[in-house]
Design a protein around this nucleic acid. Structure first.
Lengths: 200, 200
DNA sequence: TCTCTTATTGACATTTTTGTCAGTAGCGTT
DNA sequence: AACGCTACTGACAAAAATGTCAATAAGAGA
């Protein structure tokens, strides 16, 4: 028990690559199987590395959790910040922007991330979350022609409903026997109509 | 080491009482701390009994989880089924019924239950869920004056958004710096307006 | 009061999950 | 080609979580 190579040759990555690889596997696990599948052995297996490798790069499994939350939040914020809603645009263009914002949040990934944060009560603890909300809100509100209060309400409403639809829409729709995306369509349609009214 | 009573005298309950006591403690844990706190030791401690007592009544911790899901779903369905929305009522009365339905679903308990089911993928496996949805939908749809398709859409929309608001509304509102219940108010107001339009 | 049933429990055993460590092996540098 | 750095790994240790069991005791009925 000494002289042995394993059947598969080792893959040697840069630390950044390795971390990225592990987080990508973890993210997929989260979205497809839920937070309770984010165990050390599961994550390592999904990433195709040994348990010890995960610990080598992150130190502990809960550090993996935190890193995953931060990465997913970061990506989400990037996507949202990239959306342009010019203040002087016509109502129609603003509607398109809202739809895009909605799209970014309504994905299973975002919704499950949010639910995970919520259920683990990490929402208030993670500064990333607070910063993300502040940044997004600031930019979006600044770029809007409507009064600040109204803009804040619109954002609160959009984000809340988008996440809700992303998390519950598919299952509930299927249970009731509705076509995929029905909840999403209904909600978006209602939101757009409501905003046209709000914005005059 | 033999002859001794503990400092606290034993409480002896009927099996039903004991199960109820344990499930009540578990429910509180779920709502206040999330699903990851539903460990055997935590549940037992919260219920004020020994670990073995929990196992005596439920057999395993996952049986506790299932029983809790079923009990919470049952209570939720009871609440919803108790809501009366007469088909011939004026639009105003129907609006009140909708508001009540929304209220029943928008509680942290219901929302967290739904998120738990969703993240653990029990939604499709538990027959209780399917039956609950079927029962509620049937009754509500039958009691409505609008066409069936429309009624189904209204229910899908109400339930999805209510759960979303219940789960994400409070935290997001706080993060944005809005008063408690703002997301709820906005959503409900929008829903009611939308339904008046849909129902003609 | 005595007996009997069984809810209850502490001590222990098992399983699961996380973490440690010393040795191995890619890969860039010399 | 030899060297050094360190990503990587299996084997092992530790901790945490679940589950077993035999003994205890509360309460109902005789």
């Amino acid at each position: 028990m000494s002289i042995r190579e394993s059947d598969t040759p080792r893959i040697r990555r840069t630390p950044e690559e390795s971390r990225a690889n592990i987080l990508a596997a973890a993210e997929q696990l989260l979205v497809e199987q839920g937070p309770q599948s984010l165990r050390l052995a599961d994550v390592a297996k999904a990433a195709g590395v040994a348990n010890a490798t995960v610990l080598h790069h992150f130190g502990s499994i809960s550090a993996v959790h935190t890193a995953l939350m931060e990465q997913m939040i970061g990506h989400l914020v990037d996507n949202i910040m990239a959306i342009e809603i010019p203040a002087d645009a016509p109502a129609e263009a603003r509607a398109v922007g809202l739809k895009t914002l909605f799209d970014a949040l309504e994905t299973p990934g975002a919704a499950r991330l949010a639910a995970w944060l919520e259920l683990t009560d990490e929402t208030s603890r993670l500064t990333v979350v607070r910063e993300a909300v502040r940044d997004v809100a600031q930019k979006k509100i600044a770029n809007t022609a409507v009064p600040e209060d109204l803009a804040e309400d619109m954002i609160l409403l959009s984000v809340t409903l988008a996440l809700g639809v992303g998390l519950f829409g598919p299952s509930l729709g299927k249970l009731i026997g509705k076509p995929e995306g029905r909840a999403r369509d209904l909600t978006l349609q209602m939101l757009l109509m409501n905003f046209q009214r709000m914005a005059g």
